[in-house]
Design a protein around this nucleic acid. Structure first.
Lengths: 354, 354
DNA sequence: GGTTAGCACTCGACGTGCGAGAGTGCTAAC
DNA sequence: GTTAGCACTCTCGCACGTCGAGTGCTAACC
């Protein structure tokens, strides 16, 4: 697609203006805004051509023009300004992210909230582990005769625990024996390999008649199962209402319903290959519910196995350049934070697109 | 408030009907629905009186009547049917609750989702611990020379852990010494009592020059801090749009924004004293955002220290009797589940009001 | 005294028509 | 290639008239 310089300028002006006002923009308005000293009639001719190229459209005959999804696509790929964050903005993000080293889920929720606040669009964050997760080690802590704590460390470097209360007493020596056996037989295997047969044989080996072996094995299965599923967070959904495109209740409802379904969230578009960020505009989205919305999503990494996405959903009339810049910065911040570094660097660099 | 039998019957019919249709109900409709063989004119006279008592109102001169908040109050206190759940319904709830014994937060999220599904209103669940939480025991698990796991057990019977990776090596003997010391000095005290001085003196006692003591103490503080704050969950917000009273975008937005603020959720009405359930209608709510909505909330208990609320928010035109019955059942189910019982009883009993 | 039929009245919902305003496409001149 | 001018189109908001539902009131009835 080869566009003349002036056409590009007009397209950009239409988009920038439409993003701000949500009103179709007319030739006269552009003529005054654009630096060039040409009349509105000239602009009209250019706009008519842009329309025949499929980049602009008219909602009805006598209104101004609005960008089509293809127009946004050109804008995102070629035209969009790449605003650097101001010092204040990046400091605010750094500060928000570095407040407290917490569990992954809390960090994710915070990052989502932060993103939503900074962009004023709904934001989502999700984490998933790349490969199959296994248990790397078991520890069983004897608390008192009728309770103990199971601690397991997973291959993705997370630790889970469970407090078990028994309606009867248990010997500390049994727990010691079980610890050894579980570390020998239940580590480095996936959930499916924890079979009833394996549990039974372990039970017999320690002469456990109370089902304690089964309790521990059950916890192992539960933890492995939980690690397979995605951790998702969604914030700022009510921001949607700020935008006139969602004044239509039914439209808003459909999108909100879609976004509050965690399974659907996990299926949202993701950056491919080595790219850091992906922008999906309107009908480019696979999900029916998103066909007239856009998604901007950035990837962050957390150690070797974990990786996640943080994204923003909004109308196709989205301030792509602002959102992309902030999202990119936050994703990098998350990567820093989660790869174990304690402090954020002063500058994380700026947003570069695909 | 002494109402004649017929007036009560009319009020109840108006409310039942209005809850179903969201349309003002007229005298003629009532005359046919109600069993009594009286004409619409009689009903009109009765309704005029009910209006002057402040229990009904007319949205405009020539429409039917709708209940006022005071009308709902009377209904809830005196008139409302107490439907028992059908066997299928209670079985569905039992099954959903007993699927899997998980962490508290997961259970809460599930219970919220369940409530929302069963009532088709937005639901929230929150847990908070009654008294001050302290740490009851510390365990430190040596994993390898540069990492270890901290496990703490809290007075509210929950267990938290953290995996620590060090940029240097640590002696197993140091960790053993620290375990003893922390169990001696950091148990049974609240967050405020973990002072820099206490940390410093522990550090000196074990000759720790690498700051490992501070890491462990930091985790203790973090855990105690986290235990103080409320765990809140909100589900099914998009259900709100089912109801015509929230077709007004601004109204819906205000409520949604309010409900997505966890701090505000924690301040919602709660049952007082020994009552199990509380219904707050329209202007009875303190929060401005809830002035034209209603809240039904039930209490559940989990062991000695923990207690929580599970509630539903919707229009004042709410099916109070259905919601109350389901909520009560679910709250009891939660209490059972969280007090350690493995299996739900077949019947949890039925809803009794204050 | 409570109940009922009849009737005039009120008010919102809905459809229609009309004028204003904005912005366009086209044509002819520069 | 650019510009001014003009007729055209379409939306939006407003006013108006009609329709129907439901009421309040009055007078008659049991």
């Amino acid at each position: 697609m080869e566009l003349g310089e002036r056409k590009k300028r007009i397209l950009r002006t239409v988009i920038d203006q439409y993003v701000k006002t949500a009103e179709p923009v007319g030739s006269k308005a552009i003529a005054t805004m654009i630096g060039l000293s040409v009349s509105s009639a000239t602009i009209r001719n250019e706009m008519a051509e842009l329309e025949s190229l499929g980049l602009l459209e008219q909602p009805h005959t006598s209104a101004g023009r609005i960008p089509t999804c293809m127009g946004y696509r050109i804008y995102v790929n070629e035209l969009m300004a790449r605003p650097h964050l101001t010092v204040e903005e990046s400091q605010a993000i750094n500060q928000a992210l570095s407040v407290r080293i917490q569990q992954l889920d809390k960090i994710l929720a915070d990052a989502g909230r932060l993103t939503s606040q900074l962009t004023s669009y709904p934001a989502y964050a999700l984490a998933s582990s790349a490969g199959a997760v296994t248990i790397m080690r078991f520890d069983i802590i004897y608390v008192n005769p009728d309770s103990f704590i199971i601690v397991v460390m997973l291959s993705n470097k997370t630790v889970k625990n469970k407090l078990v209360n028994l309606p009867f007493q248990v010997e500390q020596s049994l727990l010691t024996k079980l610890t050894t056996l579980f570390n020998a037989s239940f580590t480095n295997i996936t959930e499916e390999l924890i079979t009833p047969a394996l549990i039974k044989s372990t039970e017999r080996a320690v002469d456990d008649r109370d089902g304690i072996t089964a309790v521990i094995a059950g916890f192992a299965i539960e933890v492995l199962y939980g690690a397979k599923t995605h951790e998702t967070h969604m914030t700022g959904a009510s921001n949607l209402f700020e935008y006139p495109e969602y004044r239509d209740i039914d439209k808003a409802q459909r999108l909100l319903r879609y976004l509050s379904d965690n399974n659907e969230l996990a299926r949202l578009p993701a950056p491919e290959g080595a790219t850091e960020m992906k922008i999906t505009i309107g009908p480019e989205n696979l999900a029916e519910e998103l066909r007239d919305s856009s998604v901007v999503v950035a990837r962050y990494t957390a150690g070797d196995d974990m990786q996640g996405l943080i994204g923003v959903v909004g109308p196709t009339r989205m301030d792509y350049s602002k959102v992309a810049a902030r999202l990119s910065y936050i994703a990098r911040g998350l990567s820093w934070l989660l790869s174990g570094s304690i402090k954020l660097p002063d500058a994380l660099g700026q947003y570069d697109e695909d």
